[in-house]
Design a protein around this nucleic acid. Structure first.
Lengths: 128, 128
DNA sequence: ACCAGTAGGTACCAATTCGTAACTCATGGA
DNA sequence: TCCATGAGTTACGAATTGGTACCTACTGGT
């Protein structure tokens, strides 16, 4: 998703959440941000290895988008071979809290659902 | 996006944020949640009128997904014509804080960007 | 001479997505 | 009798997406 078409085709312009969510929502995006947050600044290859399964194409595209949104900084060192290091910007870090909270809620729900499933399974076994 | 394929094709399973983000990220989703939050429980047609531009198909699909994730409750009254009312569940309301924070950050960034653009424009004018 | 690694870019290709338009069922109104 | 309403469903089709494979340039290792 290219940051230039947040308004899904038609009107309904400018829900400010929309911009952020469309940024976070892209595939792999949260993994990338999470990795940059927990493992610090990283080079392209490192990141690619850590976000298992992502293709170079996707990783580049996501990083460019994040850079365009000023969530990630790209430091290019023109050595041979070149080193490109990516890190979170201040803006990127502003999402830490929210992402943390989302992760917390997500984990809580997951646990609740698991407990519910376990309870239902036990109920079934008792009924039989 | 149908809630059954969060793991984008391959491994990289289980970032708990992922589930939530994939839920929120769907097109229109935040508009729907926002409307249900601010205008209270609503019927299908009402919601459709308010989320301007959405098609019936999309609205149904999003609502079904949200219902499946237990974020929205669907109350069907089999009158003629039928009345179907949608409302946020407790889980749906658990997102209020986070969405509020996202909206706040989004608006702040928007304002900052606008200020920056204004500053740059002024600079250009001064330089000429 | 050949291969590997770095940080990508490009072309192609299949699958998915989302919109549009038409259809449903049952009733009440002009 | 024909139309509109409410809450969808279905079929079709064009556009987007994301993966794969292959290309770059440069150098260090064997």
């Amino acid at each position: 998703m290219d940051a230039s078409k947040q308004t899904h085709g038609k009107e309904s312009a400018s829900c400010p959440m929309d911009f952020i969510l469309r940024m976070l929502m892209g595939p792999w995006t949260t993994y990338i941000l999470y990795n940059l947050k927990t493992h610090g600044p990283q080079r392209f290859g490192e990141l690619k290895r850590r976000v298992a399964g992502i293709s170079a194409k996707m990783l580049t595209e996501r990083l460019r988008t994040l850079e365009g949104a000023a969530l990630v900084r790209r430091d290019y060192e023109a050595t041979i071979p070149p080193k490109v290091t990516y890190s979170l910007t201040q803006r990127g870090h502003e999402l830490d809290d929210v992402l943390g909270k989302l992760a917390e809620i997500g984990m809580r729900w997951e646990a609740e659902d698991a407990a519910l499933r376990a309870a239902r399974a036990a109920e079934l076994k008792a009924a039989e």
